[in-house]
Write a protein that binds this DNA or RNA. Structure first.
Lengths: 203, 203
DNA sequence: ATCAATAGTGAACGTTGTTCACCATGTGAA
DNA sequence: TTCACATGGTGAACAACGTTCACTATTGAT
């Protein structure tokens, strides 16, 4: 143990190194890109030998999966943390949540890629339960209760909204060079359609 | 040249080896997964030395990009090749095209991943011009002309439809283990909303 | 018959993820 | 205090990777 810090309880020390590894990894991903990430670079950056990392993670892809989970969590947090305005139309509130989701993706493309676009082995990752987008479903429920949405399966509605939001976001993140018609216009159009299709008036 | 074939014109021979490489690569990707693909495995499979491949492609990622383009082309072909039924409502025709797109993605998940989900370096790939989804835009145009869609920018409409279609498809392809509410129902919901939002009646 | 082009080769390079035997320290029991 | 143990650290090694190199052998035009 080469650490100069004194008397740091073992357990706490370990979790700090773990955190170092994760933040170091994220840094490399962000400014060097996914392709040029390597365990050895990571080890160098945080000042340990490559082998040391294996005392904290059992493989490169475990680091990777951890980052993906964190990113996924950050994403859903971003969208579910939009504060309700008093007396706000539940549909508007729902839309603002979706906007927050999309904006988070555009502002943090690396996180978005982590969360969705990179599933290194063909493995079916543990399907994070519906808790993942429970906020979305709750807000959909509110719209139904307020009579703004036609009655029906809120689960289905929430998933369809998620699909639409994910669609724009991932296209914009993944193909930034494409001649998009204008980000804001496009996002607005997609969200309006996806939400509009659930409105009571449109049966 | 170890080939036993006789008198195959040079040029033609070369393009055949090139094809061998590509189909070999696809095979490995499909039944061994992206992660475990390697040039050496590919070389072994097609019976050449690893170095030989470099006479046909200048790098691994060039092979990769070629496959991605092929997949992208196959995808757009699948969606634009739905035959029009005589006297069919242009909106129905549009929907069938989108369905074909989504179905192609679900039936050929590897192609879909190639086309969208894997951009190995951070490079902005050459943005295939709007020709990519020109079929989609044309059909949108038809809906406008028929007075079924509100007048507006067909480019915007086409892109919003693409975003929605891509959203469902990529989620279903990428997270098959997630407790989806039912593929057909979900796809129907997404397409109906995305198209419905463009209808004249819904302004 | 000759000769330039070029599809093929094997060997080597540097780098990767991962494992191994080993070392050094902090912790808990004696 | 002493001792054993668990454990976070190390460097060296492994096999496999993408890529390059000097080279060979065949093709096809002159």
């Amino acid at each position: 143990m080469t650490s100069a810090t004194i008397a740091l309880p073992r357990e706490r020390y370990k979790s700090e190194v773990r955190a170092q590894i994760l933040t170091g990894a994220r840094q490399i991903f962000v400014h060097e890109g996914y392709a040029s990430f390597s365990l050895r670079k990571l080890a160098a950056q945080i000042g340990y030998s490559p082998a040391a990392i294996y005392k904290h993670f059992k493989s490169k892809s475990e680091i990777f999966d951890t980052l993906a989970e964190e990113s996924f969590a950050a994403l859903t947090r971003a969208s579910s943390s939009v504060k309700p305005i008093d007396g706000e139309d539940p549909v508007d509130r729902l839309k603002r949540g979706i906007w927050a989701y999309v904006n988070f993706g555009l502002d943090n493309p690396d996180d978005y890629r982590f969360a969705f676009l990179l599933t290194p082995p063909g493995a079916d990752k543990p399907p994070k339960p519906r808790a993942a987008y429970s906020g979305l479903r709750d807000r959909v429920q509110k719209c139904i209760e307020a009579g703004r949405f036609a009655s029906g399966d809120p689960e289905l509605m929430a998933q369809s909204l998620w699909a639409a939001a994910h669609g724009v976001t991932s296209l914009l993140v993944q193909k930034p060079a494409f001649p998009w018609v204008g980000k804001r216009r496009l996002i607005t159009r997609v969200i309006d359609s996806a939400v509009g299709g659930l409105l009571f008036e449109n049966q």
